[in-house]
């Protein structure tokens, strides 16, 4: 059975997969409905509420082909992805140790948890004005806001994950001679890994939301700006609705690709969760 699996090409295997086929059918059905909805404006005499006002998928596809030839469109992808990647990476680099430190040390937790909890409910976008003033360039302020979007989620997940590790694991390790450092490395770290990946996947989603909004607000001046958010905004200002939809779908795709990537890395680094 294993041999057979290895011989069939990956693509063929993908199309034989029930879940994958269902997903493809669902997306196709959605696109078809959308097309019908926006082409006919009304179904059996009833006005279609929103779809009627949106460009049909065929028009969007035509526009996409056109937009795909502009370097500016790809530049937008590049800029947004770069911001997301940087903000997210910094959030991981600071957030994971910060969350772990709060989890394992009660003094550290006592000191940093209250301010953290007060700052956490502030939506990242509420930081935009302050960060534009605070950071020297627009680029930095967008990145800072992006960072905040992922940071809180990552910290909360890491903290929660590390605190909910079963004490039996720690005790078992201790009675086999584990030092504090061993406990941290061999129990707390792997035990928190699932929560780290959950935090990362959720944080990644928030990062895309935030970066787009940040780009829309900051505009496309000489110093920074641009990106997919700005692409949507300027298309809207220019009244090109097809392009607005192209921008929206681009973001959807970008978000989907980045979360899939995180899930895939999680899948690779946690073999014990891949059952059978």
């Amino acid at each position: 059975m294993v041999d057979k699996k290895a011989k069939t090409p990956a693509l063929v295997r993908l199309f034989r997969d029930q879940t994958f086929r269902r997903g493809v059918i669902a997306i196709l059905a959605f696109v078809v409905l959308w097309e019908i909805g926006s082409q006919f404006k009304s179904w059996f005499g009833v006005m279609v509420p929103f779809i009627g006002k949106i460009a049909p998928p065929t028009a969007v596809a035509v526009s996409w082909v056109e937009v795909g030839q502009w370097p500016g469109y790809w530049q937008s992808w590049y800029l947004s992805t770069g911001r997301v990647f940087l903000g997210f990476t910094v959030a991981m680099i600071i957030g994971i140790p910060f969350g772990l430190a709060m989890a394992v040390n009660k003094y550290f937790r006592g000191m940093f948890f209250p301010p953290f909890e007060i700052l956490r409910p502030i939506p990242p976008l509420a930081w935009v004005p302050a960060s534009i003033i605070f950071w020297p360039t627009t680029e930095l302020s967008i990145m800072f806001v992006t960072f905040l979007g992922a940071f809180y989620t990552i910290v909360i997940n890491v903290l929660g994950g590390a605190r909910s590790i079963d004490i039996q694991y720690l005790r078992a390790a201790q009675s086999m001679g584990a030092t504090q450092w061993d406990l941290f490395r061999k129990i707390i770290l792997p035990g928190t890994l699932p929560s780290i990946f959950i935090g990362a996947a959720v944080g990644m989603g928030i990062t895309w939301e935030v970066v787009l909004a940040g780009e829309m607000i900051s505009g496309g001046g000489q110093q920074g700006g641009g990106g997919l958010g700005f692409f949507i905004w300027s298309s809207y200002m220019g009244g090109v609705m097809d392009q607005v939809v192209v921008g929206m779908i681009s973001i959807g795709l970008a978000g989907y690709i980045s979360s899939s990537l995180i899930r895939y890395i999680g899948h690779l680094s946690m073999p014990w969760r891949r059952m059978f």
């Binding site: 694991y169 005790r171 946690m270």
Partner: peptide
Amino acid sequence: TGPSKSALVVFQETALMPWLT
């Protein structure tokens, strides 16, 4: 005076590390 490998416990609920074979 504290946990040591001299007195090892097999716990009521399984305490195998789920991430290890």
